[in-house]
């Protein structure tokens, strides 16, 4: 187990070496992570969780490192979580949003990222409405890019904090049934979770209305396969984890579903449905929740819910990712 010593913030302490198994400059999605890298993140996050539990909750490991958060989309929890994580490691944090910045003046993403690199930013946490935007940034910059959510593609740190939370409760996920319900097709959270869950040996069931499900998402050449179904009542049977996804009102406006009322009828995670899951099943949600739509309030705040813990664990997991990437750069 990696040990991280609390250090005085006035002097730079010795750099802990990056654990063996970490090799990536960027974190763009979970699909390219090796099992060793996933393990490295989980182990490091465990150590970070312990750091956070201390009275000060802070170390100086990344003192002198500048981390930028570059958010082209609104976000509260992800951005705040990354900022808290970076500061807990002693890094300097620069926050940029698309509105009120050079982006509004028409600067391209590539130029923005190169500018951040030129002023000394070595890690950029990025959220963007276009799927794949972090790949463009990573390919055109020497800075490390951490994907904080790109379009309808990926949200790797969410998947990693979800995995971390599941493992804390379930231990190994080998053979465990994880049901992801909702707008899977447009969910970057679901997509990134698929890779970590399959790699961990879980049985993954994707469930939702037919227009919001992937039809051709093939895992060929990858570990395992997802099951895809429209029947939530059957799918939830025997589940060890149920993850409800946020449903956006625009899905109704664009005609993908007849109404939110119809969605609730078929896919709301409520107490009656949760009865069908295994005893002790976990209820998860990446947030922000539409309580009373994709999840009933009593379930969201019930005994089975680990939704708040997900948020707490998010800081530790993001500390781990920042730590591994930043120290990997100098290793």
């Amino acid at each position: 187990m990696l040990e991280i010593k609390e250090q005085p913030t006035t002097t730079a302490g010795p750099e802990p070496a990056a654990p063996i198994g970490w090799r990536s400059k960027d974190l763009l999605d979970t699909d390219t992570l090796s099992l060793a890298e996933i393990e490295a993140i989980m182990e490091t996050a465990e150590a970070m969780r312990e750091v956070r539990a201390r009275p000060v909750g802070k170390v100086a490991t990344l003192r002198g490192v500048t981390v930028a958060t570059l958010f082209y989309e609104q976000s509260t929890r992800t951005r705040a979580s990354f900022e808290v994580a970076a500061k807990a490691l002693g890094a300097d944090v620069v926050n940029l949003t698309a509105s009120g910045s050079s982006v509004e003046k028409g600067e391209s993403l590539v130029d923005t990222v190169r500018t951040l690199e030129a002023i000394g930013t070595s890690v950029i946490v990025m959220r963007h409405r276009s799927s794949g935007a972090p790949y463009l940034a990573a390919a055109n910059s020497g800075a490390s890019i951490i994907n904080g959510g790109d379009g309808t593609h990926a949200h790797p740190t969410q998947a990693l904090l979800d995995l971390f939370t599941m493992r804390r409760h379930c231990g190994s996920l080998q053979g465990k049934k994880v049901v992801i319900v909702g707008d899977v097709l447009h969910s970057r959270v679901a997509r990134s979770n698929i890779w970590t869950l399959l790699a961990s040996g879980a049985r993954v069931v994707l469930c939702g209305p037919p227009t919001l499900l992937p039809r051709a998402l093939s895992m060929s050449g990858e570990p395992g396969e997802c099951e895809v179904t429209t029947g939530f009542d059957e799918a939830i049977g025997g589940a060890d984890v149920v993850m409800a996804l946020r449903i956006q009102k625009e899905r109704q406006e664009s005609g993908l579903i007849p109404s939110l009322r119809e969605y609730i009828r078929g896919y709301q995670l409520n107490a009656a449905r949760l009865q069908r899951a295994n005893p002790g099943a976990l209820v998860m949600h990446p947030g922000p929740m539409n309580e009373g739509i994709e999840i009933a309030p009593d379930v969201a705040h019930g005994l089975a819910s680990v939704i708040e813990e997900q948020v707490t664990n998010g800081v530790a997991v993001r500390m781990a990712v920042l730590y591994l990437i930043a120290t990997g750069r100098t290793a």
């Binding site: 799927s131 790109d150 379009g151 997509r191 093939s218």
Partner: peptide
């Protein structure tokens, strides 16, 4: 193209 690759990459 809509299919395996678009769903994997989250592209319309």
């Amino acid at each position: 193209n809509e299919g395996r690759v678009s769903e994997r990459l989250g592209l319309p």
